[in-house]
Write a protein that binds this DNA or RNA. Structure first.
Length: 492
RNA sequence: CGGGGUGUGGCGCAGUUGGCUAGCGCAUCUGCUUUGGGAGCAGAGGGUCGUGUGUUCGAGUCACAUCACCCCGACCA
């Protein structure tokens, strides 16, 4: 079942890619590095969006929308931030096409050159902060808590479905606060929102922690992250929340008058998750039969497959299923009756498994006579024939159980692959086998870089909730004193 | 941009040292039988071999050029 997914190999990449395609989530588009998210994949993303959006709103955040295009000059203001982004951007230079004078087709009209180039947003800090400048005058205007759901473009050299595409969908929250403490608290709060979403909705165990200065977001004073382990043991950064200090406020001159009449720069945070979460979902839970969706995110939670030989049987089974569907929907579940007449049951079983539907019900003449139904769960592939009596409540409970069970399985897998390591030679070997290693680190960028150069492993985070390990020791590489262990892993 | 690889029906591939009408699997279409784990049989349709030039009696096969895509690096949610 869990295939050779424990080994990091080209096979795993292949498995991942095939699954994303076969489960009908997405496909490569005609444009290099871009992706088409197909209806089934998008339905899962929509579900993620709606749950996250609800969680954001409970923290007082509101949605807004800022432009796709950002004048080039805006990027000149925040040097450090720009150093981290400016390189791989799409740039708009013209605003008109015209017919090719000597041929068919169209060309860019050279007359229509823009005076100032526009950058397709790789992230929206610059345009948002130049807008916030106008919104914020007084301490009474604070905090400003906005989020936007949008697409961004980063002209990546190498791309992978969902994990890294040239254009991707995400949400980015940007907040402005009167004090450093308040902004820091917001950054903490939002990373915890992400952690809760990952654990409770995606059934994805994550480690919450700080990024090392090297791995921080360009322009941030502190970056908080949730790090997840995929089934090949590699780490995936699933979400980040940044405390930006006053860097952006100073660059974009966003000042306010405090309640003592003094002018100050505001304090900022930003935080985001992207369609990369879709990749996490596939790689954390999928198996050889396909996708395994946690019920909380499944567009279809229960699928029913009728089995019949004659038209009379078909109608009888479908009628029973329609009743069952109504009952389940009354309990708030999404249900599909697969009444396609041209496909055989075995084909449908395989197809819905591939798509990760948590619960499958099969019913045929035999069941009709006996008053039973076959209940199959996707996560364990178990099948049980049960009486129809009270089946709705049972399925409700089963869905909750599956949600928990998927999380527990992923958690057990991760815990089995996190180890303390104090020996450099051992580190070099073990890190390649797909482990998270808890190691002492002397806190210097030099050591971190040296380890990365030798092994490709990076500090995923300095944990703050699980795996916190504050103890004295010596750095695994440099031998210098260290006060805590950090998480090392090879990452996506 | 550096290193490696691949381009042959919709998809995945085979095609030997150049040789005759370019094959196979999946998918598609038709018919019959099937239907509790991706159906079976019979039949049918569909490709000029990425592109260009050259070598040759003859090129999918050889040479040169070119384009596209993929993988490994640099970049990254």
């Amino acid at each position: 079942m869990a295939k050779e997914v424990t080994q990091r190999s080209e096979n795993y990449s292949q498995w991942y890619n095939d699954l994303a395609l076969k489960a009908d989530l997405a496909e490569q588009s005609a444009v290099r590095g871009c992706m088409v998210i197909k209806p089934y994949g998008y339905a899962i993303w929509e579900k993620m969006q709606s749950v996250l959006d609800g969680m954001f709103k409970k923290t007082g955040v509101q949605n807004a929308y800022f432009p796709l295009f950002i004048p080039k000059s805006f990027f000149s203001r925040e040097a450090e931030h720009v150093a981290g982004f400016a390189k791989e951007c799409a740039v708009v230079t013209h605003h008109r096409l015209k017919n090719d004078p000597d041929g068919k087709g169209v060309i860019v009209d050279p007359e229509a050159k823009l005076e100032e180039e526009l950058i397709v947003r790789p992230t929206s800090e610059t345009i948002i902060w130049s807008t916030y400048k106008n919104w914020i005058k007084s301490w009474r205007d604070l905090p400003v808590l906005c989020n936007q759901w949008c697409n961004v473009v980063r002209w990546e050299m190498r791309t992978r479905l969902f994990l890294r595409t040239a254009e991707f969908l995400w949400q980015e929250g940007h907040t402005a606060h009167a004090t450093a403490a308040e902004a820091e608290a917001k950054a903490q709060e939002m990373v915890q929102v992400y952690a809760r979403f990952a654990r409770e909705v995606m059934a994805l165990p994550v480690i919450v922690g700080h990024k090392s200065p090297n791995e921080r977001f360009a322009g941030a004073l502190d970056t908080l992250t949730i790090e997840a382990m995929m089934q090949d043991g590699k780490a995936l950064q699933a979400g980040t929340s940044h405390f930006l200090g006053q860097n952006f406020a100073k660059s974009f001159d966003v000042r306010f008058t405090n309640n003592e009449g003094k002018e100050e720069y505001v304090w900022a945070t930003s935080w985001g998750v992207s369609t990369r979460l879709m990749g996490a979902l596939i790689m954390a839970h999928g198996d050889d039969n396909g996708l395994v969706l946690p019920p909380a995110l499944a567009p279809i939670q229960v699928v029913m497959v009728p089995i019949y030989k004659t038209q009379e049987e078909r109608e009888a089974v479908l009628e029973k299923m329609a009743q069952l569907k109504t009952g389940l929907e009354a309990l708030g579940h999404s249900v599909k009756v697969d009444d396609r007449d041209t496909l055989r049951p075995g084909f449908k079983f395989a197809e819905w498994e591939l798509k990760g539907v948590p619960v499958r019900l099969a019913m045929g003449a035999r069941d009709l006579a006996a008053g039973t139904v076959e209940v199959a769960r996707r996560d364990t592939l178990e099948k049980v024939t049960m009486p129809l009596e009270g089946i709705e409540a049972h399925i409700s409970a089963l869905l909750a159980q599956i949600q928990q069970s998927i999380y527990d399985k992923a958690l057990a897998f991760r815990d089995a692959n996190v180890e303390k390591c104090d020996n450099w030679e051992e580190f070099k070997t073990k890190i390649q086998t797909g482990k998270f290693l808890l190691c002492h680190w002397d806190g210097t960028a030099e050591t971190e870089q040296a380890i990365k150069d030798e092994t490709k492993a990076t500090i995923r985070c300095i944990p703050v909730d699980s795996y916190v390990c504050e103890e004295e020791g010596v750095d695994i590489y440099s031998g210098k004193p260290s006060h805590q262990r950090v998480v090392f892993a090879i990452s996506y």
